[in-house]
Design a protein around this nucleic acid. Structure first.
Lengths: 239, 239
DNA sequence: ATCTATGAATAACA
DNA sequence: TGTTATTCATAGAT
C-alpha cells in the first residue's frame, strides 16, 4: 500500500526563521512584535556587556509610536550626565578648583565606591539566581540598620550571604543610590553649566527627580525574566 | 594498511564557540577583545532595530578603561535631550505658551521633517550599497545648491537617484542637521531649564558644539564595514 | 585581524 | 505568548 501524504498545500517549507532584509517593516503589527523582541535582545546584550567587561552603558529607545524605553547600568542618568560633561569642550573637568567648594564634596568618591560595590553584588546575585536558587516574592523589609564604624555599604560582602540578604542589600543600595544621585546631580549640573557663563543659583537639578519610579524597576520585576537582573530599565512612561 | 592518525593531543575537541558564564572577565586582554566584539554587535543590533522599526536610539558606552563610545540615530544628542525633557516631571511640555516666543519657533517641525527624510535616504542608501553597487571613496563636492521654492530637502526623492547622488544628499543633510541642531539645541536647553526657576539668559547651549567631529563619523568611515551605514557613532574621544 | 564550530537570537507559525 | 527551524553572533584558536 502506497500512502501519499501531504500532497496538498506547501510540502512543508518549514517553520523557523528566515533571512530578512534590513529595511523598514511596513506591517504595523509585525513591526511591533519585532520591536519588542529586538529591544529585549538589545537590552540583554547590553546587560551582558556590562557584566562581562564592567562597562557602563545607557540606552534610550524611542519606539515607532514614541514610547520611551531605557536601559542603564548603573543608571541611565549617570551615564548621560557623564556623556554631557564629556561632550563639552572643556578638557580639564574637575581639574580647576572652585572657590566656594561645596561642603559635601566627598560624595563623589563615595559614589564611586558605591557603584563598584553595587556591581559586585548584582553579579553575585545574578550568579546565585542562575544557580537555581528559587526566590519567592521579595517582601522588602529594607533598611537593616546603619552600624557605627565605616559606612555599611563599604564593608566587604561575606561570600556566603544568603540570596535573600543579597536581594535586600541590592534594594537598600538602590535606595541609597537614589538619594546620593539626588545630591550628586545638583553638583553635576552645576559643573556642567559652570564653564559657560551664567552660574545658575539653585534649583537646577530637576530632570532627575521625576524618574524615581523608573528606577525602581531595577531587578524587581519578576516577569520579563531574562535580564532584569542587571541594568536599570523602564518601560514606556511619558508621551 | 591501517593508519592511525592523531592519537596524540586532544582528539580535536574543536575550535568554535563555547558556552560562557556571564560574569566579569578577569583577564584584561581577553576582556578588551570581548568588549570590542560585543560593542560592535550591540551597535549593529541597535542599527537594525532603527531601520526595521523606525526607532530612535541612543547608546552611550563607557569602556572598562573609561573610554566613551556612542551610537545614535538620528543623533545621540537629540535622543538624550528628548530623554531629559521626558524625564522631567512636567507633563505638558510645549503645552503652555511662553510669553516672549522665540522668533524661529517653526524650526521644530522643520527638524522633524528633516529627520524623517533623512531616515529614508539612509535606508535607500543602505539598500543600494547592499545591492552590490561599489562606491569609490567619496570626494565631497557637497552643497549642490538651494533652489527657490520650498526647502530642497523637503522634495520627495526620485526613486532612481544614483547612489552617488544619494551619498552626497546624505552628506548635505548631515551638514544641515548640524546647523539646525545648533539652533534647536538652544531652544531645547531653554525649555529644559525653564520650568525650574532660574531662566538662564544666554550661552547655555555649550555641550553640543563640541562633538562636531563625532558627528562626522556618520556613514563616512569606510573601515568598520558593517553598520556605519546607519546611526551616528563615535570612537573613544575624551577622558 | 581572520577563521570556524557552537551558542544564541529570532522570523515565521500556532 | 510560546515553539521551532534557521540565521546570526561570537569564543577560542590561529
Amino acid at each position: 500500500m502506497v500512502v501519499i501524504k501531504k500532497l496538498t498545500k506547501t510540502p512543508k517549507p518549514s517553520k523557523g526563521r528566515k533571512k530578512i532584509e534590513i529595511k523598514k517593516i511596513t506591517n504595523k503589527s509585525s513591526q511591533q512584535v519585532t520591536f519588542s523582541k529586538r529591544r529585549s535582545g538589545l537590552f540583554k546584550k547590553a546587560s551582558e556587556l556590562c557584566v562581562l567587561c564592567g562597562a557602563h552603558i545607557a540606552i534610550i529607545v524611542f519606539s515607532p509610536v514614541h514610547k520611551i524605553f531605557c536601559f542603564g547600568h548603573p543608571n541611565v542618568d549617570f551615564i548621560v550626565d557623564r556623556y554631557i560633561r564629556g561632550t563639552s569642550l572643556d578638557p580639564d573637568q574637575d581639574g580647576g578648583g572652585e572657590e566656594g567648594a561645596i561642603a559635601d564634596d566627598d560624595i563623589v568618591p563615595a559614589l564611586r565606591a558605591l557603584n563598584e560595590d553595587y556591581d559586585e553584588v548584582l553579579q553575585e546575585l545574578a550568579r546565585e539566581k542562575q544557580r537555581g536558587v528559587e526566590l519567592k516574592g521579595a517582601e522588602r523589609d529594607r533598611r537593616a540598620g546603619g552600624s557605627g564604624d565605616g559606612f555599611w555599604w563599604d564593608k566587604a560582602l561575606d561570600n556566603d550571604l544568603a540570596v535573600e540578604e543579597l536581594e535586600q542589600y541590592v534594594i537598600a543600595v538602590e535606595e541609597l543610590m537614589q538619594k546620593v544621585a539626588m545630591k550628586a546631580d545638583d553638583m553635576m549640573m552645576r559643573s556642567l553649566l559652570q564653564p559657560y557663563g551664567a552660574t545658575v543659583g539653585a534649583a537646577v537639578n530637576a530632570a532627575e527627580v521625576g524618574d524615581a519610579d523608573m528606577a525602581v524597576n531595577h531587578l524587581l520585576h519578576e516577569n520579563e525574566g531574562k535580564f532584569n537582573e542587571y541594568g536599570l530599565m523602564g518601560g514606556p512612561s511619558f508621551y
